[in-house]
């Protein structure tokens, strides 16, 4: 029971922080509670934060799976997303492949990259210090970035496809692509949960994430399960790329802008805990959105990262995690 209590307290504190961050700056600036509460653009910012949370949740999903199962931090994960975005961009804009074919191709590409990363690099480092695994994927980060620079140049490229937006009320418009990202993220969490709990393969993956040595003795094919998890993780990066490419420009350094926040979400949620990651994505995205609305987008990120550091001291095992 004690653990549940802490979680409830955390949610109460987070909600309090959220309300403070939402209203207090406006109250201080305008000196009027009524104005602060009825500010339409504040609610637009909140909704956009919620939708950004969907994108971040989707981004962190594959990383979280790999984190949880293989117990390796892929620092280069956001760069795999970047390669997926380039793949879709080139197939569609250069070779005229319809988006509905280009997107699955992008997912396949990143799944293959995920498979290769495990087979070529991580497999050899399973028994070395965690920090060495992290640094090796840091090397891959440099590699992917520079390969993209060499192959595609440093220009910002835009797919030029927009899904448009629809009005929620008179003043608040919602972008279809953000809403799509949100829905896909939710569907993926549900799908991944069902896969992990309802299928034989999923059960095997969960088992091996609990104890690598014992499960191998019991006949689980460790190497194959790790490869499958890495490929699924890579494929989820491709799925995130499909939705990101509709909203953002592609350039070789795009991974740096959302890579760090993705790791923070995984750790904040509790490593390998999908539900925790989902919640953490929304907490951080609201911090970013509200900080961005009242001050500056960068201040939003400063708040989110500072919040992450503080949370690591309070609850290093993550919001939903269990201390090992």
């Amino acid at each position: 029971m004690g653990r549940i209590d802490t979680r409830v307290w955390l949610i109460v504190i987070a909600a309090g922080l959220f309300v403070c961050l939402a209203y207090v700056p406006a109250i201080i600036r305008e000196g009027d509670l009524g104005f602060a509460v009825s500010d339409v653009f504040l609610y637009e910012a909140m909704i956009n934060g919620l939708l950004l949370g969907g994108v971040l949740a989707l981004l962190s999903l594959g990383l979280n799976l790999i984190f949880g199962v293989v117990d390796v931090v892929w620092i280069c994960y956001a760069e795999i997303v970047m390669l997926g975005m380039y793949g879709i961009y080139y197939l569609h804009s250069f070779y005229g492949v319809p988006l509905l074919i280009a997107m699955p191709a992008g997912i396949l590409l990143t799944a293959i990259i995920g498979y290769a990363v495990h087979e070529l690099v991580i497999r050899h480092l399973l028994d070395s210090a965690p920090i060495n695994q992290l640094l090796a994927t840091g090397g891959l980060l440099f590699f992917f970035q520079s390969v993209a620079t060499l192959a595609f140049g440093i220009d910002f490229r835009n797919l030029g496809v927009s899904l448009g937006s629809f009005p929620l009320t008179e003043d608040i418009y919602i972008s279809w692509s953000r809403l799509a990202a949100f829905i896909v993220a939710a569907a993926c969490v549900a799908g991944l949960y069902l896969f992990l709990t309802r299928t034989f393969m999923g059960t095997a993956i969960r088992a091996i994430s609990q104890d690598r040595e014992i499960m191998t003795l019991m006949g689980a094919a460790q190497g194959r399960l790790y490869l499958i998890s890495s490929a699924i993780g890579g494929g989820l990066a491709g799925l995130a790329a499909c939705l990101l490419v509709l909203q953002y420009d592609v350039h070789p350094f795009v991974g740096l802008s959302f890579g760090p926040i993705t790791f923070m979400i995984c750790v904040l949620g509790g490593l390998g805990n999908m539900v925790g990651g989902f919640i953490a994505a929304f907490i951080l995205s609201e911090l970013i959105a509200l900080g961005g609305y009242h001050f500056d987008l960068e201040w939003g990120y400063v708040f989110a990262f500072a919040f992450f550091i503080a949370m690591m001291f309070v609850r290093p095992e993550g919001i939903m995690g269990r201390r090992s």
């Binding site: 090796a136 891959l140 590699f143 520079s146 390969v147 060499l150 440093i154 070789p252």
Partner: peptide
């Protein structure tokens, strides 16, 4: 070759660690 040095670093870093 902008970026080639980083590509070499990246591969070298992985090789060093392995």
């Amino acid at each position: 070759a902008v970026g080639l040095d980083n590509a070499i670093y990246g591969v070298a870093l992985v090789l060093f660690i392995v």
